[in-house]
Amino acid sequence: MGKFYESSTVFQYNWQQVVQAFWKRYPNPHSAHVLSEDTIFREVRGNKLFTKRLLTKTNRVPKWGERFISNAKVGIIEESVVDLNNQTLTTYTRNVGYTKVMSVIEKVVYRVSDDNPNHTVAVRSGWVDSQVFGFKHAIQAFGVERFRKNCSQMVLGFNHVLSKLYPLNGQSNNDGSIIHEEKSSVQEAKEKLKDAAKRASDLAMSKATPILASCQD
C-alpha cells in the first residue's frame, strides 16, 4: 500500500482550448526534464479518441537513491481518452522500468468547471509506491515531494502554452462571450451579465491567489 495524493487545478480556458493545448504542452519553459514525446498508438472509437504516448524524462534522484536507480532516464507511458460527448479528457501515466524501486502512477481528469463553463478543472490523483525493503518510506516521501514539484511545473507549463495559444482569453472573456452567444430572452441576457460579473471576479480572485496553491496542498 503506497501513498495516495490528490489535487485539483482550475485553468481559465474552456475545455476545447485545454484539450487542444494538451497535445502541444511540450516543450515549454518548465519542461526541461522532458526529453522526448512520441505517439505510439492512436484510435477513434465512436466519439472517443484513445491515445498512448511514450515520454522520456530525466530521473534525478537524491544521493542516497543512486544505489537503487542508476539510469538518468525514465520512460513514462501515458494513456488517454478524450471523450467528446462527456467533455472529459482522462490521462493515466505510469513509469516503465524501476517500478519495484518506485512506481509513480498519476491520473488526471480534465472537465468543464461546474462554476464556470469557460473554465476547466483538472483533478489529479497520484499513487507512489516502493518495494525496496528498509527504504520504502524514504522513497515514498521522496516520490510524493517530487509529485508536488512536478505538479506545479505542470501547471506553470500548461498555463504558459495556453497563454501563447490563446492570448486574448483572459481579456476578452467578459464581453466576448456575451456578444457571441444568442440572447433569446431578457432573462437569459440578465443571467449572462451575472455570469460575466462572476467571471470577472473569479479572474480577479485567481490573480490575487496563485492557482498553484491548490496543487501544493
Partner: peptide
C-alpha cells in the same frame, strides 16, 4: 532503447488494473 515493449503495450486505463482512490 532496451525498454520493455510488453510493458509499453500493456493497457491500464479503464481496466481492472487501474488504481483506485482509497
Amino acid at each position: 532503447l532496451k525498454i520493455d515493449l510488453k510493458e509499453i503495450e500493456r493497457n491500464v486505463l479503464h481496466t481492472e488494473e487501474e488504481k483506485k482512490k482509497p
